[in-house]
């Protein structure tokens, strides 16, 4: 975490928001080694390959928070590497907790990562939703990506996808999202209910 300081926070935020792949890649690779080394020191019961997966999960989660505006640069009072490590510990803790491996990681609750306890969906629900999203086929996959990730306007989507007009693009986007929600509800509804009753 020592290589990066608070100034890097602004650069990484900018890189995510402007979809600057080269800079995001540089930070992804730059933060990786130390993250895995430190996580391994803390949770040596977790296999090395799984540590890499945890790093990827944490980085993806960080990117999503920045892009969606859930995490603002002003919220971050520590270097991004430290924040990312905090997220990694939370994810690692899921594995550790699940397997009831003893952990004396008292600092886990003190880390800077906001708690997820008030989230509407449980981790399990979120994973199920993620699975459905991963299976979305073309052209919905591209339309949803352009609109929700790359901030394309309807005009831009119509042009990129060779649709006749902005209205066609808008209808397509709404149909894709509505259909996806219906599929998720059909597939997961019972499970969501069951989980919610437990909370």
């Amino acid at each position: 975490m020592t290589r990066y300081n608070l100034e890097d926070n602004a650069k990484l935020f900018e890189a995510f928001k402007t979809n600057n792949n080269r800079l995001v890649e540089a930070y992804y690779l730059g933060l990786k080694t130390e993250f895995i080394k430190n996580l391994n020191l803390r949770y040596n019961c977790i296999p090395a390959d799984l540590l890499k997966d945890i790093y990827q999960d944490a980085f993806v989660e960080l990117g999503e928070k920045i892009i969606s505006g859930k995490l603002k640069e002003s919220d971050l009072t520590v270097p991004v590497g430290a924040y990312l490590f905090g997220m990694g510990k939370k994810i690692a803790h899921k594995y550790v907790k699940l397997e009831e491996i003893s952990s004396d990681d008292d600092t886990l609750n003190d880390i800077c990562v906001a708690s997820n306890s008030d989230a509407y969906f449980s981790d399990n629900d979120r994973e199920l939703i993620q699975e459905y999203v991963a299976k979305v086929a073309e052209p919905c996959s591209t339309v949803l990506r352009l609109f929700y990730f790359e901030d394309y306007t309807m005009f831009g989507i119509a042009k990129r996808m060779n649709y006749k007009s902005e209205d066609v693009a808008k209808t397509r986007k709404n149909k894709c999202m509505t259909k996806l929600k219906e599929i998720i509800k059909k597939g997961c509804y019972g499970q969501f209910d069951a989980d919610r009753n437990h909370r």
């Binding site: 792949n21 990827q56 980085f59 892009i67 999203v133 990506r145 929700y148 990730f149």
Partner: peptide
Amino acid sequence: EVELQREVISAIRRQVLRNKVNTF
């Protein structure tokens, strides 16, 4: 419905980011 759509949008963003990370 609102919460589901919020989560689906987050999931779409995570999916795109995951593909990017795999490319890295």
